[in-house]
Design a protein around this nucleic acid. Structure first.
Lengths: 154, 154
DNA sequence: CTGCAAGTTGAAGTCAACTTCAACTCAAGG
DNA sequence: CCTTGAGTTGAAGTTGACTTCAACTTGCAG
């Protein structure tokens, strides 16, 4: 019980249900070796991948995007700390951007919802550009649609 | 065209699809008056509610929770700036908490994923308490499940 | 060797948050 | 008046992220 983990053990240690782990495997987020009897055995390094998946999910990143990120790790060998560090650097930017966005949202909410401007005109959250001008007065919400990525630094 | 907005106008100004606006109405997030011919007409104050919904969604709050928050606004009268300000104060705490959480996640990611500790032991993201000790060594992920609320200040 | 908890699969179910569709009706310009 | 684009409804479809189920098979403690 030192070499590798059963799905139950990985589940207990990661806090992710076995069914979810199998689902992640189908999506290509994690991988497992098999015993002679076809049961999954996870090398300990998979714990790291699962943790990464969960952390990324926490901050609102889809499994599909997470898979893309994980695909940047070398498939042919066990990822080294350096491999992970590279990934971490990329994602740190994502997190920083998310944090920046949240701060803006909070401040705008204070200044807009809380300010009493009933028409929401001249609000930070609205009309930050002018591409939609010329269709009469009034504001236009330009927050991305829920599905789309909120992290698109210019 | 000054008093109230059609669903198309509200859609254009809020960036939310008409179908989504009808959906929001079914969920009780927004309300509409009706013309003699049964078409929706939105008082301008609804723009504010829609903006609130979208902003809250951005930060990962479910429509159900948003509805609860909006239910705190007086139904009998048009919400005053003070009503909105009260809501804003409550949500500012939520946003601050989200920001705090994101910062922690980012730092932990740097210190954990990036550090090279292959077993993830002694990691900030793991085992913050000791309730799960006694089942052998190893870590346990305690991030809330995706469905659950990440904002539970103690 | 046996018993039984833990594991396996594919298919189907669930839930949130919408969108799409069909089959209409309304509103407003010419 | 007539046409046409915008609006209406209920029902069904979609996507993401899983869970549940049925019907088995494995692996280990006693």
């Amino acid at each position: 019980m030192h070499e590798s983990l059963t799905i139950g053990q990985l589940s207990a240690r990661s806090g992710v249900a076995p069914s979810a782990l199998r689902y992640y495997e189908r999506l290509g987020l994690i991988r497992a070796e098999r015993t002679g009897g076809n049961q999954r055995r996870y090398p300990r390094t998979e714990l790291r991948r699962v943790a990464f998946v969960r952390i990324a999910q926490q901050v609102g990143i889809s499994l599909d995007e997470i898979r893309e990120a994980l695909d940047s790790l070398p498939a042919s060998r066990t990822p080294t700390p350096d491999d992970w560090a590279a990934l971490s650097r990329v994602w740190r930017e994502r997190l920083d951007e998310k944090i920046r966005l949240l701060g803006k949202l909070r401040d705008d909410l204070d200044g807009c919802i809380g300010c009493g401007c009933l028409s929401l005109q001249r609000c930070n959250l609205y009309n930050p550009g002018d591409s939609l001008a010329g269709e009469g007065p009034g504001a236009r919400l330009v927050l991305p649609r829920p599905g789309s990525d909120t992290v698109t630094p210019s």
